[in-house]
């Protein structure tokens, strides 16, 4: 395959751009503008097309497509690759749903359960995140002044340059049986044995909401900031109570920002690996951990790819649903 693919790539890049140029000519008619090559000169054109072409094809599109293709193949020893058994199959996906053939349950209770829990918990974490971040974003956009605002942005950004693993580690210290919370609880006499925050997944949810705060705050902030403060003043003049103003004036306006923040936080939460590995209870896995295990414990990459693709599809469906619910277009949120 590689021998076919490599020389095809530059051809494909050239064809795509040629097709785009042809489409442009057809749509606009005889154009007075200079073409891409005349505008940029040979050297720059080669750099621009080369870099973008390689990025899109070799890094973004082809690997994803290949992963999908790979997920439809059985896992075979090298000697049998390309042989008669190397045919497309749905076996990897049917494993996710129905489990091993002949399973008494009739479906893959364990993995489907983890999958469902991952999605539901991610939605929960996303909503929690929104609830935490909305007041802060509103404060930054409409109340804080220049210097205060800059300080807040700085204070928000700094913690997020700390390694994801270490951030999770910090929560582990906080929630461990000899951690700060347990020490406080024990000392106050509220409990008489340490609470296992890790097993009950409280630590995990706290750590996950913490991990992507920034990605919720900034889209919200941008959306609210763009809003005319007079609208709020007007609503207040009309005697609207504060919750009414937020629910029916600010939030509808900030819809694209809310959608952007929610989709991003959801995607990252559902796809998180570090926090679940560090903070997850020993008995409950995150779906990415199952994928990880297929790769590094069972060494079944085909099955792992199928699971990964299933996760990607779930994420895409979630985004579509959110866009529908909020009635915003993809262009609006991807700014």
């Amino acid at each position: 395959m590689s021998r076919f693919l490599l020389p095809l790539i530059p051809v494909a890049v050239a064809l795509i751009f040629w097709g785009m140029a042809a489409a442009e000519r057809r749509a606009v008619g005889n154009v007075a503008h200079l073409g891409f090559f005349r505008r940029n000169g040979a050297a720059l054109s080669v750099y621009l097309l080369g870099a973008v072409g390689l990025w899109i094809l070799l890094l973004i599109v082809l690997p994803q497509l290949y992963m999908v293709e790979f997920s439809f193949r059985p896992r075979l020893p090298p000697s049998e690759m390309g042989g008669p058994k190397d045919a497309y199959t749905l076996a990897n996906y049917s494993y996710l749903i129905f489990g091993r053939p002949g399973d008494p349950e009739g479906y893959n209770k364990l993995h489907l359960g983890i999958f469902l829990r991952t999605i539901v918990a991610s939605i929960f974490v996303t909503m929690l995140n929104f609830a935490i971040c909305y007041p802060i974003a509103f404060f930054m956009a409409k109340v804080a002044k220049g210097g205060q605002m800059r300080l807040m942005v700085l204070a928000l950004i700094v913690p997020f340059w700390v390694n994801e693993i270490l951030r999770a580690f910090a929560f582990r210290i906080l929630f461990s049986s000899s951690g700060v919370f347990n020490t406080l609880l024990l000392a106050s006499g509220l409990v008489d044995a340490p609470v296992d925050f890790l097993r009950s997944d409280i630590a995990l949810y706290a750590g996950l909401s913490y991990a992507y705060l920034l990605l919720m705050i900034f889209p919200l902030y941008n959306a609210i900031e763009a809003m005319d403060s007079n609208q709020i003043e007007a609503a207040r003049d009309l005697g609207a109570p504060w919750w009414h103003i937020h629910l029916f004036v600010v939030m509808p306006y900030a819809k694209p920002g809310i959608a952007a923040g929610c989709t991003m936080v959801f995607m990252l939460t559902a796809g998180a690996l570090a926090a679940p590995q560090v903070l997850g209870g020993p008995s409950s896995l995150w779906f990415t951990q199952v994928v990880y295990n297929w790769f590094y414990q069972a060494f079944n990459w085909n099955l792992g790819a199928a699971y990964a693709f299933a996760l990607l599809i779930a994420c895409i469906i979630f985004v579509m649903v959110v866009l529908r619910l909020f009635k915003v277009s993809l262009g609006e949120i991807a700014r």
Binding site: A27, V28, G29, N30, V31, A32
Partner: peptide, 10 residues
């Protein structure tokens, strides 16, 4: 004559 698509500017 200078045209932008169907629009004739000059």
């Amino acid at each position: 004559t200078i045209a932008f698509g169907n629009f004739i500017a000059v």
